[in-house]
């Protein structure tokens, strides 16, 4: 009889973020043979088992995916590079999924932006990403007081809480609507497939097979060979501070 350890050694637990990445994730998982008909933004069920592919899907907030994967509660997960850069958790980063593109930018109201980055003195910067912002200013040699916020960072300069913000943006629309202009681009980010370090070894067959299937799908979508297409889009990330 099959013991639970044997069963667990082949079942794959995947952490999926609700929100902006989910509409991209569902077709990707379908293309690699994982049934996710019940995976919707409004799904009340948070755990979905697909018996046929022996996969268990966990729906959660994007910010929690890295925690589940790092602790090994989930074997793999899909999460934005923005969170990976900010959280610096110990996980294996396996595939750049290409979707969910966004940019980390330094932005400020027009009046402030016209003066450019301050040469000396300190500025107050509001952000949801204190690590990334702090590292950026350190690199630039600018003294900055980082103010951690949990959302609607655009509000901070309007209310006089901070002079500038560091935030992610995909189209720049929200920034523009709030009279903010981009001063500098700090990094870009896309969604990544990540794996727990231990799962990556103990369930290597399942994870490697998932990786190569996903790379196959991505290659078909992009119409380019797997390796070549992937490196270029985000080559600037390396220079931009994750190394």
């Amino acid at each position: 009889m099959e013991t639970k350890i044997e069963r667990d050694s082949v079942i794959l637990n995947i952490a999926l973020p609700k929100g902006r990445l989910l509409p991209h994730i569902v077709p990707l998982l379908k293309s690699v043979g994982i049934n996710c008909d019940e995976v919707t933004e409004s799904s009340r069920r948070l755990v979905l088992m697909d018996e046929r592919s022996n996969t268990r899907l966990f729906l959660m907030r994007p910010a929690d995916v890295l925690t589940y994967v790092e602790q090994g509660a989930c074997d793999v997960g899909i999460v934005g590079k923005d969170l990976i850069l900010e959280e610096r958790r110990d996980v294996c980063e396996l595939v750049d999924l290409g979707f969910g593109f966004c940019r980390f930018v330094l932005a400020a109201p027009k009046e402030v932006a016209e003066k450019g980055l301050p040469g000396r003195g300190s500025i107050r910067v509001a952000t949801k990403f204190p690590h990334i912002a702090g590292e950026y200013f350190q690199r630039k040699g600018i003294r900055a007081e980082i103010i951690k916020l949990h959302g609607s960072v655009e509000l901070a300069p309007l209310a006089g809480l901070a002079e500038m913000i560091v935030d992610i943006t995909s189209t720049g629309q929200t920034l523009a609507e709030n009279n903010l202009v981009v001063l500098d681009e700090i990094a870009t980010a896309t969604a990544r497939l990540v794996a727990n370090r231990v799962s990556f070894r103990l369930k290597s067959e399942r994870i490697n097979s998932l990786v190569s299937k996903i790379q196959g799908t991505l290659a078909r979508v992009q119409g380019t060979p797997t390796e070549a297409g992937e490196g270029d889009q985000n080559a600037n990330l390396v220079g931009a501070g994750i190394s």
Partner: peptide, 21 residues
């Protein structure tokens, strides 16, 4: 060093980027 750094972080995406460059 770039290759070592990518592998130390278990970052195969960065490894592909470094290698590609």
């Amino acid at each position: 060093d770039l290759v070592r750094d990518a592998l130390a972080r278990h970052d195969f995406v960065a490894l592909r980027e470094v290698a590609g460059s």
